[in-house]
Amino acid sequence: MKEFRYTINDPVGIHARPAGLLVKKAAEFQSKMTINGNGKSADAKKLIKLMGLGIKQGMEITCQIEGEDEETACEAMLNFFKENL
């Protein structure tokens, strides 16, 4: 299993738009991905739950990735966060 931490930069947090993009990105990989933050957790491939986390600017999330392509997925997801959130 791979894991990384990231502090949200985006002033609005994981709102509708980046959540949508995040789900699309996550769907590119086979690995199971879980986002933990704000005391809750959600499957990175499930939009509504992900938005329901209510992650805001300044909050730290952890992203856990488990599966055959976890190496590439982890790198891609971290890059995604850096670029979009």
Partner: peptide, 16 residues
């Protein structure tokens, strides 16, 4: 326009 793309994805959401 993005909101309608999001709506479409909500309709693909397993939980829903």
């Amino acid at each position: 326009a993005m909101i309608f793309d999001i709506h479409k994805m909500m309709l693909e959401d397993d939980d829903y």
